[in-house]
Simulated assay, not measured.
Amino acid sequence: MYAIRAIVAAALLLPSAFAAAVPSVEYCQNPRVVSTEYIGRDKNVLVQHTACDTVAAPQVAHAIEARQSNNVCGTPFNTFCFTPSGGGPDPNDCHVITDALLYDSQNVGALFTLDPAQNTSVITMTYQSCESFMVNQDSVALTYCRTDWASILDNLAFNCQATQNAHGGLSVATNQEWFIQVQHS
């Protein structure tokens, strides 16, 4: 009888232990890929723009008008690694995405926009084992720098690995407007 109670108690605690270890961010309701392209010098990084019915938005007050774009290049953020270790992307695959971002920054333009009104709340980049995505959690368009994303991507890819007891991670703007995540594809 005590063994059954112990098994039931352990089973009830198990989901909460996994919930704490694996972030569950319900950031995009009813995701739909609205465009797909390949970027970089070798056109080997898959980019997908995703529309969401709604995005989990923080309670952020803005003085900016909805028709304006909010340039968030260089804004402060906090970085978190996903624990425990195992199953993370190869940081060298992630660096290919970094190179593609830097190449496009020089050859396409330094800035890009995530605009809910244009059905682009999420941009995902994938190369082999690495997937990185940026999510606009705000209701207005956000303009961001490709070089900033590249820097965050390399930092997460190389510093949130098994040697740090991690398997990817994310950087979140301190005001919760956006986040960039790195994980296994």
Rank of each mutant, 00 (worst) to 15 (best):
C28E: 08
L46E: 11
G87D: 03
V72H: 05
F82P: 00
L153N: 08
T36F: 12
Q183S: 04
A9S: 14
A3G: 04
T143F: 01
I180C: 03
D138F: 14
V172P: 04
K43I: 05
V108E: 09
Q118D: 11
I64A: 13
T126F: 05
G88L: 02
T54D: 10
P91V: 11
A141N: 03
R5D: 14
T54I: 08
A66F: 15
T79Q: 14
A19W: 11
R146S: 03
L114P: 02
D90P: 01
K43N: 13
V22Y: 14
S185P: 06
A173Y: 12
F77Y: 15
C73S: 09
N71E: 12
A110T: 15
D138T: 12
G168L: 00
A100E: 13
S171M: 04
V122P: 02
T174H: 04
T98H: 09
Y127G: 02
A11L: 09
G86V: 03
A100F: 14
V55M: 06
F179M: 06
A9H: 07
C28A: 15
N159Y: 04
S139A: 15
A19K: 06
C94Q: 01
I123D: 09
L142H: 03
C28M: 09
C52R: 08
Q48H: 13
A150L: 03
Y127D: 04
F112A: 03
Y27H: 12
L14S: 10
S171E: 09
I123W: 08
A110K: 12
R146N: 06
A17D: 01
R32A: 13
I152W: 13
M1E: 14
N92S: 11
V25C: 02
T50Q: 07
R41Q: 14
W178T: 01
D42K: 07
T174E: 11
E26V: 07
Q68N: 15
H62A: 13
Q176G: 15
T75A: 07
V135G: 01
V34H: 05
R5P: 01
D115E: 11
W149F: 13
A173W: 04
